[in-house]
Amino acid sequence: MKKVFPDAKAALDGLVFDGMTVMSGGFGLCGIPENSIAALLATGVKDLTVISNNCGVDGFGLGVLLDAKRIKKMISSYVGENKEFERQYLAAELELEFNPQGTLAERIRAGGAGIPGFYTKTGVGTLIAEGKEARTFAGERYILETGLTADVSIIKAWKADPQGNLIFRKTARNFNPMMATAGKVTIAEVEEIVELGSFDPDHIHTPGIFVQRVFVGSFEKRIEQRTVRQRESA
């Protein structure tokens, strides 16, 4: 199976349809599949359900899909860096399924492992628990959370080989490995594709069995929150 594609547009070919569910890796702007997001925007696809920790920032990352009103629903954990997200949600233009961050990560991991649901104490007694099945185990209250899957997962890795084996770099690993397991088709954009056999098998983070399409992207790597201090005088 040929997995290497020339670019994001080619990697998305034949997979995109209105109303689809997309998982998008990254945390803030770290490890986001920015090339795949831009290519998704260019297709004109709409009514997306997007599963991602957050929705980028205004004008970058998933924020470009939000600005174009291509996203119908977000399943996410954190929305604080995007004013357009806030505006659309408060104006009832955007559906939001809000998750505690650990619950979101576990829902994705469960979906990738074929686990339809699990019980957690997180959110018990809060708005998160409303409408969810609850059970008591060993005297403690738990709520049922469901696993998550997607039509397509778009993720960012550091290096790949032609079989789709992936290595992530430091904190860019974040949600990407678990999302790779939970998509019907997973597209990985990487900084470099190395020769088959270059990886020590013990160093591979995501085996190629979970990855169907790979391409080399170009990355802006923006800093989400730039914090500076004045230079001290001599």
Rank of each mutant, 00 (worst) to 15 (best):
K3N: 07
G112A: 04
G183C: 04
V228C: 08
S153R: 03
G111Q: 01
F60H: 09
N35E: 15
E192C: 01
G117R: 13
E220N: 12
N35Q: 15
N165E: 02
T21L: 04
G61E: 04
G31M: 01
C30P: 00
A10E: 15
A42Y: 08
A172G: 01
N99K: 03
D151F: 05
N165I: 02
E195Y: 05
G59H: 11
K73N: 13
R222W: 05
G125P: 10
D161R: 04
I223C: 05
C55M: 14
E97G: 08
R213T: 08
G217L: 04
P201C: 09
L15G: 12
E81H: 07
G28E: 00
S198F: 11
A38E: 14
P207I: 03
F137K: 15
L15M: 13
A150G: 11
S36W: 05
V185L: 04
A150H: 04
K73R: 15
T21Q: 10
D202K: 14
V194F: 00
S36N: 14
R226L: 11
I143H: 09
F215C: 13
G31Y: 02
M178T: 00
T181G: 00
E95R: 12
F27N: 07
A11V: 10
Y78P: 02
S36Y: 05
D47P: 01
R213A: 07
R229M: 14
V216A: 07
T186G: 03
S233E: 15
P100A: 15
K9R: 15
K72D: 06
L166K: 01
V216M: 10
R226N: 06
H203R: 06
S198D: 10
L148P: 03
T227D: 06
V185P: 07
I71S: 04
L29N: 02
G208H: 03
S77D: 00
K170E: 13
L12K: 08
P116S: 09
P33V: 04
G123L: 09
T136P: 09
N54Y: 01
C55D: 07
K83T: 14
K159P: 00
N99L: 02
K46D: 07
I143W: 12
S153H: 04
F17I: 02
F210I: 01
M23L: 13
L127M: 11
R226D: 04
L196C: 05
